[in-house]
Simulated assay, not measured.
Amino acid sequence: MVGILIVTHGSFGSELVKSVELIIGRQQNIVTLALKQDDEIRDLADSASAAIEKLDDGNGVLAFVDLFGGSPCNTLGSLLKRKNLECITGVNMAMLIEASDSRQSMNLAELKESCMQVGRTAIFDLRSELSLRQ
């Protein structure tokens, strides 16, 4: 099973996992890391590296970060030289549900592409959607 690592500013990642589990149930092999005020980036990199080692059972790790160009993103970017690691920016609930539901049936590359597609197609203008249905 592909491991999932979520690295975000503050507790966004852990709260996102709690919300996903509310919908689809308890998940295994997921680690969240939070960058908080006054944390050292080097410590985040060390924690991320250790989490990747823990999560990778041979099927790889799909990492999610909150914001392209932010410190969590840059930290994961420095770790992408690892063979069994992929990373997606802009994590949202739809893509995390997809990752959790599909990580046993897809390989790392397929899962990354599927999550990116789901993440893109889960964004709507609610006013427009509701007016179309009336």
Rank of each mutant, 00 (worst) to 15 (best):
R103S: 04
M106D: 15
L126T: 15
V61P: 02
S100E: 04
Q134E: 09
R103M: 06
E53M: 04
L85G: 01
G13P: 05
F124T: 00
L96C: 14
N74E: 06
N29L: 05
T8I: 04
L111H: 12
D101H: 13
V31Y: 00
K112A: 14
F124I: 00
L5C: 12
K112T: 12
I24H: 09
D66I: 07
L111T: 12
G58S: 07
E15Q: 07
K81Q: 07
L80S: 09
A122W: 10
S100W: 00
D57W: 01
R127D: 13
N107M: 07
R26C: 05
A122N: 11
D43H: 05
G60K: 03
V31H: 00
V7Q: 05
L85D: 04
A63N: 08
D38N: 14
T89N: 02
E113K: 15
A34E: 15
G58F: 06
L96F: 15
V17W: 07
L76F: 08
V7G: 03
K81A: 10
R26K: 14
K81R: 07
N84P: 02
V65E: 06
S131L: 13
T121W: 13
A45T: 01
A63D: 04
L44H: 08
L35G: 06
Q37K: 06
C115K: 04
A109R: 12
N59P: 01
L80M: 14
L16C: 00
S49F: 09
L5G: 13
K18A: 11
S19V: 10
V61M: 02
I88W: 01
T8H: 08
L33K: 08
A99F: 03
L35F: 12
A122I: 13
I52N: 02
M106T: 01
M93Y: 06
A63I: 00
E98I: 04
S47V: 03
E98G: 07
S49C: 10
L108D: 08
T75F: 05
G77V: 00
E40T: 11
L130M: 12
S19E: 07
D39M: 11
L80G: 09
